[in-house]
């Protein structure tokens, strides 16, 4: 083990003062040190996208960032999507369109889709499919994820 340093991660508007090694990935810090286990880890090498979170408005792979690099930034995870009991349109659309089965990849897809649509609400359908090809799902065959994201995109544009 190497020396741990004290950092503060701001997740969904809440500060978490934690002590981490330099090598601690953001994904591990969110889960292990901050206890926000909604963000999942699927490959730890940046391919599957299960760990996607939004950092300062950008959807990123949290397995490819070190926790210390995210100090002072606004981190958003799946736990912060709903406002109280009201689900985010993306969450609602995933339920309405059966965009999930086992649910393991779901937080990553939600954060990916929300992150991109907030930046590019008028993204073309073709580009949207490209965006969704960023993450892997093994259950749904993507059919209903695509349907759900299209529906939510419409809702988010309102």
């Amino acid at each position: 083990m190497t020396e741990k340093s004290s950092i503060t991660l701001t997740i969904n508007g809440r500060d978490h003062a934690i002590k981490v090694e330099a090598r601690r990935t953001l994904a591990d810090a969110i889960r292990e040190d901050c206890g926000q286990t909604g963000t999942h880890i699927g490959c730890e090498h940046g391919v599957c996208g299960a760990c996607t979170v939004i950092v300062d408005g950008e959807p990123v792979r949290s397995c490819l960032m070190f926790a210390a690099q995210a100090a002072g930034k606004q981190i958003r995870t799946v736990e912060g999507l709903a406002k109280g009991d009201t689900l985010h349109p993306m969450q609602q659309a995933f339920m309405d369109h059966h965009g999930l089965q086992c649910g393991f990849c779901t937080p990553g897809f939600l954060m990916l889709a929300v992150g991109v649509l907030e930046r590019e609400p008028d993204i073309s359908d073709d580009d949207l499919i490209d965006v969704l090809s960023s993450n892997l799902c093994r259950c749904t065959g993507y059919q209903n994820i695509i349907k759900a994201v299209r529906a939510a995109a419409k809702e988010m544009r309102k």
Binding site: G49, E58, P59, V60, R61, L64, G115, D130, V131, S134
Partner: peptide
């Protein structure tokens, strides 16, 4: 640029 990896990778 749009051929490079995937969107979240391109953010970093």
């Amino acid at each position: 640029a749009r051929h490079i990896a995937h969107y979240p990778i391109r953010m970093r």
